[in-house]
Amino acid sequence: MRISLFIACYNDTLFPETGKSVVRLLERLGHQVDFPLEQTCCGQMHYNTGYQAEAMPLMRRFVEIFKDAETVCIPSSSCVGMIRDHYAKMAELSGDTQLMEDVEILLPRIYELSELLVKKLGIEDVGAYYPHRVTYHASCHSLRSLHIGDLPLRLLRKVRGIELVELENIDQCCGFGGTFAVKNGDVSTAMLADKLRCIENSSAEVCTAVDNSCLMHILGGLHRQRAGVRTVHLAEILASTDEVSAT
């Protein structure tokens, strides 16, 4: 299958390993990956912070670039949430009927990584090997916007060598929330403290998720506390094999 990758602006800039892992993983599974270089950002930060007018051209840009794609893979649950929850309404607001039509056709072709693997490609065992003690943090968007539930865990359970440990209060927000982490830094920090306690209690070496934005927040706190737990995007675990292993 030909799969177009939307990497998300922050993954592109800050977490290139995630993108590389998605490419390696999908190619290993026999698919053809395509990365349209014109892509930038889905507009989530602008839209959620109240800059909806500024998000509009970014939405148009995304639709323009991906409207002819067969299947779009996005390794970021919050970007998928942005697109699914708001693009149709934004297009309607623009009054542009062509745009509305394009969005309607595009939406069902967009998949978050674990959705793509389990639901679209029907695969749970991706042949990964990852000999570490791992806990899974469920991002808010994965749970309550995409409703992907335990799809990532189903993939993780099939990884050889992995020791999965449970994270208590798995459905609790880590406190990131985009600009919330800066605008309401004190509350965000208090929420993060709760999350870090749960991660430490899990005795995991690695905390994984389907969203690097949560992981950036969590790692920021873990590193400040010298906790010694690493954060790794799900794609990087799934891309690891006996030969190629993520750190």
């Binding site: 800050l14 290139p16 995630t18 993108g19 590389k20 270089l37 800066v182 830094g185 993060l192 920021g220």
Partner: peptide
């Protein structure tokens, strides 16, 4: 570990990894 202005609200309790040398798109290219 320390940023100026409003971004400093991030670094009061969290560190940040700097941008890596190579972006994903550079790698892809």
């Amino acid at each position: 570990t320390s940023l100026p202005g409003e971004l400093g609200n991030w670094t009061t309790a969290r560190d940040l990894r700097p941008m890596p040398k190579q972006s994903f798109r550079d790698w892809w290219r």
